[in-house]
Design a protein around this nucleic acid. Structure first.
Lengths: 160, 160
DNA sequence: ACAATCCTTACTAAATTAGTAGGGTATTAG
DNA sequence: CTAATACCCTACTAATTTAGTAAGGATTGT
């Protein structure tokens, strides 16, 4: 388990997708504009997200990305793992005996913690965040302005 | 909140200190040997740990490091924050309006998550790990075999 | 056809992480 | 006192990761 800016970008981008899920696909250009990172870097991240089925690309005009699964089936851990390849937990594996085997228990402890952290993040789904009252408020305001646009690009059927 | 190998080194090192707290100070050389990282790098980490009062250096022959506070008053979050300076959460602050202010809510959401993560890690203290049954078992075995040696060479045995 | 958008690859620059080197300072056993 | 131990500090380097650039495809709605 590792958590860096890369993971943060991925998680916030996925939040964005979750919030606008009903309004049709979200373009990377929008996210790039919002988060202030380059389009290409986002494309790298989304390549991984797509490979793991977390997002689904929609090509052509009016296209973009949408969630690959329902928001309540996507956990924060899923996202972090998809983009932030995990840490190599032990260095003294096998060849080194770690001070006559006695001290290796700290690695066991770390694994313990790492698992707990994973479980914690795995218990938080994207859908939880949309329930946040403050988000609902803002989101509703958005809907009124965006729904007309959404009518021009109506909900595309799941062509897959 | 950020979590990298640096944080892992610090946390495992602190676990080591917590386990051997009764046996006197733990030397960086021992930890270096255990974790397979250089002494100098450890010294850099421990400089930060010392500055935040998480550890206490004991100089002279037989010296080393010990916990700066009782193990139950040191959380994993404390350690991670001490060595892994936190992520800069927002880029579009102030000058950039984040898509007319609408999309900035993802940053709010990230903060929300980040706080939850912090609280989670803050709720895990070092003393919890020592209670781990498997650790107690190994730790006890160590004590019995090493305590006599430890009495002759008070700090720790590094015989080979 | 055309433009919007995803998709892919290759390369580069900046930042961070990890490690080295070498000097110093405080402590204490003998 | 002296020497050994071990903390403390600064500066440098190498490796890795992060972030960005560039350029070109592929797909699809209008």
């Amino acid at each position: 388990m590792k958590l860096s800016t890369k993971g943060r970008y991925a998680v916030t981008a996925m939040m964005d997708l979750a919030i606008h899920d009903r309004d049709g696909p979200v373009t990377l250009a929008d996210i790039s504009n919002c988060q202030g990172i380059s389009l290409s870097y986002l494309e790298q991240l989304f390549a991984k997200l797509r490979q793991t089925g977390l997002v689904e690309g929609v090509r052509g005009p009016g296209g973009g990305y949408r969630l690959g699964k329902p928001a309540n089936q996507i956990s924060v851990a899923d996202i972090v793992v998809a983009v932030d390849e995990s840490i190599d937990s032990t260095r003294c594996k096998g060849n080194l005996d770690c001070n006559k085997g006695e001290r290796c228990l700290t690695h066991h402890l770390w694994n313990d913690l790492s698992n707990r952290l994973y479980d914690f993040l795995d218990g938080i789904s994207l859908s939880e965040f949309i329930k946040d009252p403050e988000v609902r408020k803002i989101s509703r305001r958005m809907d009124s302005t965006a729904s007309r646009i959404a009518n021009m690009f109506p909900p595309v059927s799941k062509a897959s």
